[in-house]
Design a protein around this nucleic acid. Structure first.
Lengths: 193, 193
DNA sequence: TCCCCTGCGCAACAATGTGTTCTATAGGAG
DNA sequence: CTCCTATAGAACACATTGTTGCGCAGGGGA
């Protein structure tokens, strides 16, 4: 019993349009009427698929907001691993649809519990990736287990997000090199926490 | 030629209500209709004062968003000065009207250039305060001029804002102590940048 | 005190967004 | 070929966002 191809086609077309609206004009413009105008799909059909504005917007978000899965590289020296990982994170923030809507997710999170959940899940993944890099460095004996790993992880991640989402300053390769250098230097100086 | 007291009274009453709506229910609920319902002021009068929803919301924001001016303390040891300064910053984020609407300002900044300006101004002040603390420490010879002050300033500020506005995790005194300790330890180990 | 000006409340109106419901039609599956 | 179901389209109700015109009342100047 296969699904009616009309259902699939409608969902596909509608979500494509919704995603484009979300990226180009912001979450407020993702509306049944707007999607209907763009696609030619009738409003009643759209309401049948997504019963209210909220679910349509959620669907559009989910289409994009699947965060890129980052396979951690943990073989090289710490500086190299960290540079590689944060480079991917920075690239995602700069160049992917996810990066373009991230500010809106953060925005929604101030009033919406589900958006906070999305962020929490996302950050959990990010923290785990960075943690894997540090653990590997400790296992190799490159840094000692005394370094305050928890805090370093948060430093590593907080600064690029702060720059991008709050200060709206550029993230470029030069800045990233400095940032990674600082983190590595801290880690290798074995600071007491 | 004094201003008609009716104008003043209306503005006062309306903005009080708008501010409360902004803090309690979010920017989307700051609307001429809602303010009219709460205050009894007619919608047409509100539209006469603030021609569209945007200007009403801006007015409500401006009412609260005057960031607290922080006179830097630069006399004590670095750890003490930094702890004091970041403590005020953290307190403002946790307990003041400004802290309650900050997420919404950040949210607005993703699509609104003026909100970005507000944030840029605000951050400029914050960075200057922290910079003053580090400069004083250098002048006292407590730390050397070799430390990457620019990066440390950003670390000091980015993490609390990241935690509050993006991760929505708690900022408490214990965490702040750890954070300040880490920054100070980095500064005193004279890392090459 | 009286008069005029101006801000206010009220009602009507248009436009848009948000849903719901009904009917007719067209396209897919057996 | 026939039945089932998704879709298009229209009509409707309702809220929000603005606009406009009118009558009224309150404040300031003579």
């Amino acid at each position: 019993m296969k699904e009616d191809p009309r259902l699939i086609a409608t969902r596909q077309t509608a979500l494509d349009a919704a995603q484009k609206l979300l990226m180009d004009q912001g979450v407020l413009h993702v509306t049944h009427g707007a999607v209907s105008n763009v696609t030619g799909i009738s409003r009643s059909t759209l309401y049948r698929h997504w019963p209210d504005a909220r679910s349509l917007r959620d669907a559009a978000f989910r289409r994009i907001a699947t965060p890129p899965n980052i396979p951690p590289k943990t073989d090289g020296p710490l500086r190299s691993d960290l540079r590689w990982l944060l480079g991917i994170l920075m690239g995602a923030l700069n160049d992917t649809p996810w990066g373009r809507i991230a500010p809106q997710v953060v925005a929604a999170a101030s009033t919406d519990a589900e958006a906070r959940l999305v962020i929490a899940e996302f950050m959990k993944d990010r923290f785990a990736s960075v943690e894997a890099v540090f653990s590997a460095a400790i296992d190799r004996g490159e840094i000692t287990a005394d370094v305050p790993v928890e805090q370093l992880i948060e430093l590593a991640i907080a600064v690029p997000y702060f720059r991008k989402l709050i200060r709206h300053t550029a993230l470029d390769a030069d800045w990233l090199d400095q940032h990674v250098n600082l983190i590595c230097n801290i880690a290798k100086n074995e600071l007491e926490s």
